[in-house]
Every structure is written in C-alpha cells, then in structure tokens.
Design a protein around this nucleic acid. Sequence first.
DNA 1: CTGTTAGCGCATTCAT
DNA 2: ATGAATGCGCTAACAG
Lengths: 339, 339
Amino acid sequence: MKKGHQVTMKEIAKKLGVSVSTISRALKDSPELHPETKRKIVEMAKEMNYQPNLLAQSLRISRTKTLGVIVPEITSHFFASCISGIQDFANTRGYNIMICQSNESIDLEMANIKTLVSSQVDALLISLSRETNHYEHLLDLYNREIPFLLFDRVNEDIPVSKVTFNDVGGAYEVTKHLLENGCKKVMYVSGPEDLYISKKRKEGYMQALEDFGVEFDPKMVKISNLTTEGNIKIGQEIAEMKERPDGVFCMIDPVALDILAYWKEKGIRVPQDMALAGFTNNPSSAVVEPSLTTVAQPGYEMGKLAVTHLLDQLDGIASDDPISIVLDTTLLPRKSTEK
Amino acid sequence: MKKGHQVTMKEIAKKLGVSVSTISRALKDSPELHPETKRKIVEMAKEMNYQPNLLAQSLRISRTKTLGVIVPEITSHFFASCISGIQDFANTRGYNIMICQSNESIDLEMANIKTLVSSQVDALLISLSRETNHYEHLLDLYNREIPFLLFDRVNEDIPVSKVTFNDVGGAYEVTKHLLENGCKKVMYVSGPEDLYISKKRKEGYMQALEDFGVEFDPKMVKISNLTTEGNIKIGQEIAEMKERPDGVFCMIDPVALDILAYWKEKGIRVPQDMALAGFTNNPSSAVVEPSLTTVAQPGYEMGKLAVTHLLDQLDGIASDDPISIVLDTTLLPRKSTEK
DNA sequence: CTGTTAGCGCATTCAT
DNA sequence: ATGAATGCGCTAACAG
C-alpha cells in the first residue's frame, strides 16, 4: 500500500499563480501581505485540505516540537499515569510525544535513546530501567547537550533535573503506621539493592524503626527479584520463619499482592497473623481483600510537573541549572493493617 | 535551554576531504566504494558520534517509518497492553510509534489524527473514542489514501481493515456460563447503546438466552454511562428491584467491580444472592473478593496482529483489501459465579 | 570508485 | 506587497 499524496504549498502556489513564499507568509498570518491575497490563499488551502508537513518545517527550523519519553513499561498503571500527565501538558504547550518502553532492559533503553535522538526530539523524559547500572548513555546525552530529565527511577549522579517522590518520607510513614498499629517486628521486603527506590525506602524504614526505639534486625529485611515467583518465594520464606514478623512492608504493591495471595492460600490471615502494606497504590490494592494499606504516588501529577519543568527550561522560563522536584506521597491506611 | 549541535554528514565530509555523497554511500554500506575509504568514514562517523537525522532522511524518501496510534486512554490496562504489542512488533519491523490518547473525546480524536498526519506517519492504528458517532475524519483519511486500521473500538462502515474480538462469542459464553450455573434470570448491564461492544455483547447475550430457551425480558437490560457513579446507580437499581436477577453480566469489568463494591457494602452476597460476571479481565478482577468471572481479551496479541497486518499491507506483503481479523476471547470462570 | 547536481517541503533573507 | 534565491540534512540520478 502506498500513502496518498499530500498537498504542498507548491501546489497551492501553482493553482493561485503566486509564489511559494507568499503561501508560506499567508499561512502564518504575516502582516506584510495584501489582505485579499491572504484570504484567497487561506481559503484555497482549506479547500485543498492542506496540512503542513511538520517534517519539512522541523528540518527547516531544527526544532520538532516533539518530546521523547522512555519508561520501563507502559502497562504499569503508574507509568501509564505519568505518560498521561506528560501527554496532556505537552499538548497544551504545543508539543507531541514519542513514547518508548525499555522493558526494564538497559540495552533497549540505550536503543530507545538512540532512536529518539535520531528522530530529533527536542528533549527527553526518562525513567530508568531496573537493569540500568551504568550511565554512559545518559552522560553522553548530557555531553551532547540534548536536554533531558529523569523521573521516578533516577540516578542521583547525573547532572540533570530530577522529579521523584519523597520515598524516604513515604516509607517512614508506612513503617510508622505499622508500628503505631501494634506491630513489634516489622519486616521490609525490598527489591534489588541497587535500585534507587530500594535504598530510599529502606532509609525511611530504618529511620522509623530508630524513632520508635526498635532495634534493626537484619533478618527483618528480605530481597525479592520482583517477579511473581520471587515474591511468592519471599512469602513462603516468611511463612516458614521460626520467628515471623508481625508486620510486613513491601517496597511495591505487586510484591504485597503476590504475598497476600500466597498467604491466603496457606490460611495465613492478614492483618490478624501479620499486617501487610505496600507502596504505589496500584488499582488492585484497593479492591483486594483485605484492602491493602499503601502509599499513593500521583503519577499523573509527576508527569505534569516533569514535562512542565522541562518545557520551562526549553523555553527559557526556568533556569538550565538542574533542580530536584520532590513530590509528596500519601499514606492510605486500609484493612490489611487494621489490628 | 538550547539543544546542542548534532554532527552532520557535511562535517564528516569536510574533515575527511571527501564529498557528502561519499559519506552517505559509506554509511549505507554501498558496494561501489573503496573499502579503505569506507572504513575511514565509518570510523570517523563513530568517533564524531554521528547519528543520522531521521527528519532529513524521511523528508527525502517521504517515509518516516513511524506509525501513529490513537487510543481512548493509555491508563487502561487493556489499551496499554495493545500499545505494548504494537510497539514491540513495530520495532522489530523497524518502525517507531507515536501515541496519542483521545480521552474518549471525538474532538481530541480528530485533533490527534491531524497532528499525526502532519507528522507524516506512514500509517495509523486507531481505536475509536466512546464519543465518536460520526466518521468524517476517518473517511477523510480514507479519501486521502492514508493507510490506517481500526482495532477494538471499530465502526463497521469504514472500508479499512479491522481487528476485533469475538465479542458476540465471548458474551455468549459468559451468559451460557451463568445459565449453566443455575441462573434463571440473567441481566445484561450495557454501556451506551451506540457503542460497538454494547451491541455486539448484547447479541451474544440474546443468543445464549434463546439457545437456552429463556425468554428475553427487557427489564433485564440496564444501561450504564460507565462512570463510577453511573455504575453504582445501576447496582443500586438492581438491589432495589422487586424481582431481582440472579445473575448479572456486565459489559466491562469496571462496571462489575463498582457494582460488587456497592453490593458488598449493602450486604448483598456474591454469588449467593446474585452471580456477577464482567468482560475484559482487568488485573483487579482476579484479586477482588470474590474473584470476578470474566472474559479475557489478549490486548498484547491484538496489538501485535493489528500492527503486523498493517505493516504487511504497507510492505505489499498483504493485499490492500480490507480484512477483518477476529480474535477469540477466553471465558475465565471464577468465584463470583460459583453457585 | 567518487564528485556534482538536484530536490524533498518549508521559512527566511534579500531583492524589487 | 510579492518573488527569487538559499539552505535545513540527506539520498539518488547522472557524470565522469
């Protein structure tokens, strides 16, 4: 199948017996043009169903008005919300977005960057993959002076603006909540240790323990690989412990949901036997039984702030100096921690 | 902030004292080139971190290798899965995608089409908004010979390829399932009547009733506006009926989930008082209590098939004649219908 | 084997 | 107030 022909300025010009530059001027409402000529041209353009070729325009002015977005996975409700926010606010500023997912692979992440750069996007919004443990590709972007920003999954050493949640605070709140609800031994189920959020949320967990005078017990930290199998394995390990925790805080909701499903199957009651809490506020967490206590992260808002700041930088409204935007999270106490 | 300069062929040419066309040839591995020259150029390109400008390339060959995708909303797990499938298989064929969401608004849908067309996408994959009740914008695409295809939310009168689920069959299966599990009075909760899936799923519902010798009762069909409020209102109406149904089939899972939540609050037991089933297989449906019987629609697969067929048409592998691809759904019997 | 030329669609500078 | 000429970065036809 071949694409049908698109009307160009040249054709309008020929039809009207004027030059292409006149068409160009008329269509961008240049003041130095005879009103009548302008009227005729605009009318004819409409009649011929003229649509400007953004490619040519972009090549000419070397700006595409397009932003590249890279997320680990688009099917995650959280990232979908971010994208939604980015899209909406990019659009209101006259920008389009091209979205890529890295599928949590650093190789794909690098390939995505390459593609988006080749596509001449004006800037990038990136949320790093789980696998990303070296950063040459980002430093390369930086060195080539291609504007970009990191959101949610960030690395602190890259000298660009970052938008994150107050992970420490959120984890603190949820740990505190467990402690206040009578838990004596609170466990933290982490993801891989080099993940930014693994570290940050552990920080909050530790801080809360300390503030409540609970001594840290290394046995009360487990690390999941974040697959369903891995999560269930952790659930099993906990179930089989001689000295079980009485409250478990999981780094992200899916971990808690998998563990909950496993425990329910095994007859372990939540919250009676063990309280359980997550982080992120996945849609499922509200409807599961018992409903899962978690920490809400407003993804749409994050996307909105991220893209707005980036465009502010592009447009010279905000300074080029990297800033860190930290969004607050909200503890959502639900049944899974009601002792 | 201004974007840093990108290396062009011209610069490589100057540095090496050869012409731009030689660079071009070397970089696309033309056979009619001195190996040594080629080697030097490739090396220099690498050293200078040359990235081809896809814009220029596309303008030149009038093909962008980019596909436009329009979905009602990206935060829906189903559409996100479709996008994921589209993205993956577009990439393997060397295509990128630009995604837009219509937010269920026909105006935004039209605006999105305009933007994507201006961006010179080679083809479009569109899933219609709920609001879309006239089709000039699609016929316009058709008349302008811009290849596109409709998926999931389609209109049958547009002469292009369509990828849909066997909605009739899926609805038949779920209704049959309710009937076989002892329901005597099965209700269908529909969405707005002009929606394609509202109609198709009703067809399956009616067919099953007929096959099981159950007379159709108009009181056993209700129409929700698909907002949470609307869904709850339906749940309330059902609860207050003198003669309640004993089984309720909802057009989409969110309706069933909202109704379930309302009923639980009111002490109405599922499935004992009324059985309940949905359609789509949202992630929440598996974890809600009781788990919700539903019909699985493989979104990723739909995206994959849709994009593959479209690219086959573009590449001349498949005929340009519109075809209809119908995907099978799978009934997922769960606790909400276990009588 | 390589350089020159032309042109994709558009915006802009320089003429007139 | 309008046209002609130039160039954005790249490819391809043509010429040698």
